[in-house]
């Protein structure tokens, strides 16, 4: 349990630093970069919700609803930012 949490935290911090690195190098295709940032945000959202918040233990209704709201927000924002 504790190792799993630590592994999740390491992954989350790694993804955050990866975002920073991508930004520092200012790679081109800025529209696609927005999609990349929002995808990384979605993965981090999933990890925090399922591992820290224990969404994995909850009824399927809560899993589907929470992730659907996240997916909807990230998709609409990405499409508007491209």
């Amino acid at each position: 349990m504790k190792n799993q949490l630590l592994l999740t935290l390491t992954g989350l911090i790694g993804l955050t630093l990866l975002t920073g690195l991508v930004l520092i190098f200012e790679w081109s295709m800025f529209g696609l970069l927005a999609v990349f940032f929002m995808t990384v945000a979605g993965v981090k959202f999933y990890l925090v919700a399922f591992e820290f918040m224990e969404l994995a233990k909850a009824n399927r209704f809560w899993k589907v609803t929470l992730m659907a709201i996240c997916f909807l927000i990230l998709t609409v924002v990405s499409l508007l930012a491209i």
């Binding site: 970069l33 927005a34 945000a41 981090k44 925090v48 820290f52 918040m53 996240c70 990405s78």
Partner: peptide
């Protein structure tokens, strides 16, 4: 209490890229 705290995490994970990164 933990669920409320994690909610603050979740909201920030959406706010940060939208406000600070994508435009």
């Amino acid at each position: 209490g933990a669920a409320f705290w994690h909610m603050c995490d979740l909201i920030w994970l959406l706010l940060f890229p939208t406000l600070y990164l994508i435009f």
